[in-house]
Amino acid sequence: MTQRNSLKEPSPAIAAAPYLFIFLEIFAREGGIQSYVKDIFRSYSELTDVPKADVFLLRDGQDCSNPFATRFFRFRYLRTKSPRLGRIRLAVALLVYLVQHRPQRVFCGHVNLAPLVQWLCRPLGIPYTVLTYGKEVWTTLPKRDREALHHADQIWTISRYSRDRACEANGLNPNKVKFLPCVVNGDYFTPGAKSEALLKQYDLVDHKVLMTVARLWSGDIYKGVDVTIRALPAIAQVFPEVKYLVIGRGDDQPRLAQLAKDLGVEDQVVFAGFVPTEALVEHYRLADAYVMPSQEGFGIVYLEAMACGVPVLSGDADGSADPLQDGKLGWQVPHRNPEAVAHACIEMLKGCEQVNGELSDRRCDGAWLREQAIALFGRDALTHKLHHLLQSSL
Rank of each mutant, 00 (worst) to 15 (best):
A15C: 14
A16H: 11
L20W: 04
E25T: 02
I26F: 03
F27P: 05
I33H: 10
I33C: 08
Y36E: 02
Y44G: 00
E46M: 13
D49T: 05
P51F: 12
D54A: 01
D60V: 07
N66E: 13
F68N: 03
R71K: 14
L78E: 01
R79E: 15
L85T: 12
L85G: 04
L85C: 07
L85P: 00
G86H: 08
G86A: 05
R87K: 13
A93F: 11
A93T: 12
Y97A: 03
L98E: 03
V99C: 13
Q104L: 10
V106I: 09
H110K: 11
V117C: 02
V117R: 01
W119D: 04
L120D: 02
R122F: 07
P123N: 05
T132L: 11
Y133W: 14
T139Y: 09
R146G: 03
R146L: 07
A148R: 07
H151V: 08
Q154S: 11
S162D: 12
E168C: 09
N173P: 01
V177Q: 10
F179Y: 15
F179Q: 11
G186D: 09
G186S: 10
G192D: 03
A193N: 05
L198D: 06
V205Y: 13
K208I: 05
V225N: 03
R230G: 04
L232H: 09
I235N: 02
F239S: 03
V242P: 02
V242R: 01
Y244C: 08
D252P: 00
A260T: 05
L263D: 14
V269K: 02
V270E: 12
F271T: 00
V275R: 01
H283M: 02
A289T: 12
V291M: 06
G309W: 04
V312N: 01
D318V: 10
G319W: 02
G319I: 11
Q325E: 15
L329W: 15
N337W: 00
A342D: 04
H343D: 12
G351F: 11
G351L: 06
Q354S: 09
D365Y: 13
A373I: 08
A375L: 14
L376V: 10
A381E: 07
T383L: 11
L389E: 13
Q391M: 14
